[in-house]
Design a protein around this nucleic acid. Structure first.
Length: 425
RNA sequence: GGAGAGGUGGCCGAGUGGUUGAAGGCAGCUGCCUGCUAAGCAGUUGUAGGGGUAAACUCUACCGAGGGUUCGAAUCCCUCCCUCUCCGCCA
């Protein structure tokens, strides 16, 4: 959510910056609603002041045993009018809140302007793209050939866009999760969490999935709970409605969770294989910082996610998302894209964002400045470190051998009982 | 699932219809005192939204959430949420 005062005072500038997202926003209504609301508020507060004064008087007079009936006449009609106006105020307030909740975040000034993903800007690349002496196979083919990924049986159990890992495949997925968590928690960089995989509505509002993107979420029938689409949701919300001491910032958390997404509207995209699933595993990084350090922390967080790819020896590049490709709540995002040989291109494996105070304002997460003073909103950040299924994709494809086997990256071996290679048996 | 208890400010905790934004304590801050520390004394400290060029100031709201009763609600009524204890069930 944007700062309502800032919005009120800089409406045109805000509109201009939001327009770079290439999404329609409806700020014309804002001005009207805001003014109507404040007008009504002024009126009703005046009446309330009067009512409170009279009520005080009545109290005093009654104690002295005096008659108050003529005061009751005025105050009774006041009460009716107040009720009426209160209703109108809350209508305006609700409409305003709905508008605010569906308005996306302002892109940071450093974000390149562009229409869509084609205008994202490559920042740097890492690692050598392997020169294959044979035609590299696609990961699901490698996986099914080796008997470690069975998408057909997964379909039998749960349908399309689900996966069944077996044997060394399951071990690789689990090993990667452990490797990532160990890496992030080493030297106390991140505190490890294991949160609930379901959350209630307020959490989804807090991080921005709701009210706008309900169709992307799985809701539990008969409950007010949703399956989390990312650990960002439960982890960011652990400090909802809290005031953190500045001395305790930045707070850094890492958590493994499965993620559940409907992937509505992505029919036909990545239908083959593990790239786009309704359920996938991810290790997430989340930070809470002060406003003046959040962009430094974004760099660090991105570097922490990159480290996983480096440790695994997977070539990747870092891109800055342009304004048109930026997510609803993000002010700035770096995507990490890993090299996928079968497609001959880089594919997203991590997305690292600074949300400024957008989520903090929704979720009411604040900090008390050093030495006292009014609480201020924190900045929240998060990034994947990494999407585990896509990491498996990258390993299978980049480490595949001509005979159909797959070498296991050095760093991962100790997480797979020392296995060096996955072959047929 | 059954029975009971409870949710009050940064924390603990009083408060069953009017002078309570809320006693008291802790913690914080500011002074005084003090060789230092500790202690002591006095004062002070919530959040949000309006009004005000800003400060001062001022108004409104907030005692888990939402409704209701009333001239007036932390206090009475209803619904919901959460926590705790006991019993049952269960990985």
């Amino acid at each position: 959510m944007l700062d309502i005062r800032h919005l009120r005072e800089n409406l045109e500038e805000v509109e201009k910056r939001l327009a770079t997202r290439c999404e329609s926003t409806n700020l014309a209504d804002f001005k009207v609603l805001d003014e109507e609301r404040r007008g009504l508020l002024k009126e009703v507060e005046k009446l309330k002041e009067r009512r409170n004064k009279i009520s005080d008087e009545i109290g005093g007079l009654k104690r002295e045993g005096q008659d108050v009936s003529n005061l009751l006449i005025e105050t009774k009609s006041l009460a009716t009018r107040i009720k009426e106006l209160d209703g109108m105020v809350s209508e305006k307030k609700d409409a305003l809140r709905r508008l605010m909740l569906t308005t996306p975040n302002l892109p940071h000034p450093s974000v390149p302007t562009g229409m869509d993903s084609s205008e994202n800007v490559e920042l740097r690349t890492w690692g050598e793209i392997r020169d294959f002496t044979f035609e590299p196979k696609e990961h699901s083919e490698i996986g099914s050939h080796l008997g470690i990924i069975d998408l057909e049986r997964a379909g039998k159990i749960a349908g399309a866009r689900f996966a069944l890992y077996m044997g060394a495949g399951a071990a690789m997925e689990r090993g990667l999760m452990n490797l990532m968590l160990d890496l992030h928690t080493s030297e106390d960089r991140y505190i490890e969490l294991l949160p609930p995989f379901m959350v209630h509505r307020e959490c989804m509002l807090g991080t921005g999935q709701l009210p706008k993107f309900e169709e992307d979420l799985f809701k539990i029938e008969g409950w007010e709970h949703f399956l989390i689409p990312t650990a960002e949701v439960p982890v960011t919300n652990i400090h909802r409605e809290e005031i953190i001491r500045e001395e305790d910032l930045p707070l850094s958390y890492t958590a493994y969770t499965p993620c559940f997404r409907k992937e509505a509207g992505s029919h036909g995209k990545d239908v083959k294989g593990l790239i786009r699933q309704h359920q996938f595993n991810k290790v997430e990084l989340v930070k809470f910082t002060t406003p003046d350090t959040s962009y430094d922390e974004l760099e660090k967080l991105t570097a922490d996610a990159e480290r996983v790819l480096q440790v695994l020896g997977l070539p990747y590049r870092v891109v800055t998302l342009c304004t048109g490709d930026l997510g609803f709540a993000a002010a700035k995002t770096y995507d990490l894209e890993v090299w996928v040989p079968s497609q001959g291109k880089y594919r997203e494996i991590s997305s690292c964002s600074n949300f400024d105070d957008f989520q903090a304002r929704r979720a009411n997460i604040r900090y008390r400045p050093r030495g006292g003073g009014k609480p201020r909103f924190v900045h929240t950040l998060n990034g994947s470190g990494l999407a585990v299924g896509r990491t498996v994709v990258a390993i299978l494809e980049n480490y595949q051998q001509e005979d159909g086997s797959v070498l296991i990256p050095d760093a991962l071996r100790k997480y797979m009982r020392g296995m060096e290679k996955i072959g047929k048996d």
